[in-house]
């Protein structure tokens, strides 16, 4: 299936917590990629102060990159897919700890514990009333998010889709159960059927040999691929291999 990445953005930090935000920052990182930091916290300066104060790190990461990747006009008119492996796990574990201690559960925390909290907050902040899905796919969450974005293009070929992927390191008490490179990061891709941008062919190979797993999240590997100008990218930490090939024309 052929599509175009019209624009992309990403937000993370280096291992020593230097922010990587601009295209120049990411080009520098892509020239000698290394593991990412665990702490970064984007400013989300455009959010009203009351919303910003309550925003979790994941919300800041995802909403910051979503806004950076879109113009005002696009922001209100795109369909959106938010993909995250862990989602609101920090909020959920706080609520479960409250329950264990027989303390009252905060209604505000509960409202923000849903997997689509970031999508909802983006919709509110941007006035976007279009279709939106929030997804997860285990260790292959980025690829499944990309697929869901493509499924939206199937339903509405003329409407661009904003794919936002993000995660942060899981809470300490479950960290020993997660075997995947962890970082605080988010990426955003504005994907369309055609128009200006990077043309790619996307496919799924159920029998493909597993690609060499990288030491940073797959979504960031995709940003590296876009900056580095490689011909093709294969990703797959699970049962299948996902492949993007740059169109030559």
């Amino acid at each position: 299936m052929d599509l175009v990445i019209r624009r992309f953005s990403a937000w993370s930090t280096t291992g020593d917590e230097t922010e990587i935000v601009s295209d120049e920052d990411w080009k520098t990182w892509a020239a000698s990629p290394a593991a990412l930091g665990r702490e970064g916290k984007p400013p989300v300066a455009f959010l009203p102060p009351a919303v910003r104060r309550r925003a979790t790190r994941l919300t800041r990461l995802m909403v910051e990159t979503a806004f950076a990747c879109t113009t005002d006009e696009e922001r209100g008119s795109v369909r959106t897919v938010f993909s995250s492996r862990h989602g609101a796990i920090h909020v959920a574990i706080k609520i479960l700890a409250s329950i264990a201690k027989e303390e009252a559960v905060s209604p505000l925390q509960f409202s923000h514990s849903v997997h689509n909290a970031q999508a909802g907050l983006f919709s509110i902040a941007s006035g976007n009333r279009e279709a939106s899905s929030s997804v997860a796919g285990g260790t292959d969450t980025f690829a499944h998010g990309f697929l869901e974005a493509v499924l939206h293009l199937e339903r509405r070929p003329e409407q661009a889709v904003l794919l936002v992927t993000g995660d942060e390191p899981v809470p300490d008490n479950v960290a020993h159960l997660v075997h995947e490179p962890e970082a605080a990061y988010a990426t955003a891709l504005l994907i369309a059927r055609d128009g200006p941008g990077t043309r790619l062919h996307f496919s799924l190979d159920p029998k493909g040999a597993n690609a060499q797993p990288c030491a940073w999240p797959d979504a960031v590997e995709f940003i590296r691929f876009l900056h580095a100008g490689d011909d093709a990218l294969s990703i797959g930490r699970g049962r299948s291999q996902w492949r993007w090939v740059r169109a030559t024309a």
Binding site: G87, V114, N116, E148
Partner: peptide, 12 residues
């Protein structure tokens, strides 16, 4: 033992 995508959707 399926080879296709395994997508979880979570919009509350």
């Amino acid at each position: 033992e399926l080879g296709g995508p395994a997508l979880s959707v979570s919009t509350a």
